[in-house]
Structure formats: C-alpha cells, structure tokens
Amino acid sequence: MVETPDPALEAQISAELVKRIGLGDRRAEEELVRRYQRGLIYLVQRRTRDPQLALDIAQDTFRIAIEKLRQSPIEQVERVGAFLRGTALNLASADVRKHVRRGTTADSDAVDAAADDAAGPFDNVSREQDKRLVRKLLDELPVQRDREILIKTYLEDQDKSAICEALGVDSAHYNRVLFRAKERFRELLTTAASQRGLKLVDS
C-alpha cells in the first residue's frame, strides 16, 4: 500500500485507478478497495456508531463505485476519495441505505477479495490496555503543565487558544507537546499491538 501524505501524489494515484478501472482492470478494482477501505469504514463508523453497519455500507459503497467507474469515469478523476466519501455518506442515511441494499447488483469479487485488509494496526489492542497506556504516557510527561495540555485537550475538549491562555504557553509549545504525546502514544499502541500479536501466535 502506497502512503500519500502528498495531495498531488494522491490525485495522480486516484486518476490512474479511475482510468484503469474504466479499462476493465480487475486488479485496479482491488487496489481501490484496499487503498480506501479502512478509512471508509472508519469514517462511516464515526457517523453511524455501528461497526457492522459501517462494514456493510463500505462494501456497498465499493460495489456502487466500481460499477459506476466501469461504465464511465467520474467528473473529477483525481478525487476518487471524495467520490467514495460522498457515496458512503449517502448510504449512511437510513432511507437511502434500504433503497441501495435492494438495488446493489455489482460484481463483488474485488470487495470480497480485499475484505480482510480492513483491520487497523491497533485493532487487537483492548480498551483496557488503552487506559494503561494512557496512564503510562501521562506518567512519562515530566512537566505537570504538559499533562494539563493533554487533559484539557482530550478530557475537557477545550480549544487550543483557551488552553494556551490558561496555561501561559504559546501555540508552538502546545503543538509540540501534543504532537510528541500523540507520537509517543502511537508508539506505545504499536508496541502493545505487536506484543499481543506475538502472544496470540505463541498460544
């Protein structure tokens, strides 16, 4: 899977996938699913708060998108992500979803083939582990003020400017603390995920 923090590169990959699917390239269809599936499921799950429903909607979205792309390219070929997002959000509406489920007929080989790739890197880390890792992270922060930055941001949902004013820190310091804390937490999650994976293999 190619990572594209660069919007220009993302547009190029998008246009290429759209073109290849239009030419009947089945591997391009699989690539489309693999590339956007995880994000799409996450996005829909945030809206519906229902993991199974999010999975269903994501699969329906890809079926519809592939059927559409096989017939004709979308208007903005460099924004296939936007097309998928729009389709998924439409499906997430309960009334539309019922209608679409009845009418979905597209070949689902590509969707089925890529379905196993939907798991995220932290999915096997339990919520109980999350709490332990959060405590570890907060314990590791030597400065009380930096702990307050995290707590005010995530527990109290305060705005950045309000936090900076309350704690007497500038915007750059806030960004730095938050960025490092998130990176560290991600590192802790990754380590926990890999250790959990090893235990599963061992057992």
Partner: peptide, 17 residues
C-alpha cells in the same frame, strides 16, 4: 485520511488517547 493510511493511524491513535 481516506487515501492516507499514516494520517488515518494518527487519527485513530489520537481517538484512542
């Protein structure tokens, strides 16, 4: 983040935090 797995990881890690 739809097309950027690394950014998606960041979002999911921040959400869990």
């Amino acid at each position: 983040y739809l097309g950027d797995p690394d950014l998606l990881d960041q979002v999911q890690a921040a959400e869990r935090l």
